[in-house]
Computed example of a mutant assay.
Amino acid sequence: MLPENSLSTVLNARTKGHGTETIVFAHGYGTDQSIWDKITPFFVENYNVVLFDWSFSGAVKDKSLYDSMKYSSFEAFADDLVTLLGQMELENVTFVGHSMSGMIGCIASIKSPHLFKRLILLGASPRMRC
């Protein structure tokens, strides 16, 4: 059991499904994990599905968690992703990143390649500032 103030708890991380492989879905700016609600039912029979909300999401209750100075680059988000996966004891995941989360996943996979099996980038732009 993770502590009440762990990153996975404050970012509303949850796992559902059954399988030997894990898919992590990360939403883009201006949304929350509910953006994946229509597609995750197709994965839960064969995969462990992980969903979470970024600190800027309106679904995160602790508004003090988001610090605009800290999160002025994708590096801090990538550090959060690495920490989140570590706390959840996940490795070798398929990471699905929408928009800015795609770029965050790229940075995190460079920092900790053992955590990622593959990256799936949806609408991620290489021109985003890091």
Rank of each mutant, 00 (worst) to 15 (best):
K61F: 13
K38N: 11
N48T: 11
H114M: 12
S57R: 07
W36N: 01
R127M: 10
V50S: 01
T22H: 02
I107N: 04
N48W: 08
T22M: 00
K16F: 06
L115P: 02
N12M: 03
Q33N: 10
R127L: 13
N12S: 06
D79K: 15
S112G: 13
F43N: 01
S68Y: 12
I23S: 02
F52S: 04
T31D: 08
L65K: 15
G17F: 01
C130E: 07
L84D: 02
H27S: 06
F52D: 01
M1G: 08
H18K: 14
N92R: 00
F56V: 15
D79R: 04
I35L: 08
S125Q: 12
S109I: 09
K63D: 06
V82A: 12
T83M: 04
Q87S: 04
A13K: 04
I39T: 12
C130Q: 14
L81K: 10
Q33R: 12
L51H: 01
Q87E: 15
T40Y: 05
N12I: 08
N48Y: 07
V49R: 00
F116T: 09
M88C: 02
T15L: 06
G58M: 09
D53C: 11
V10Y: 00
P3N: 15
P113I: 06
V49T: 08
N12C: 02
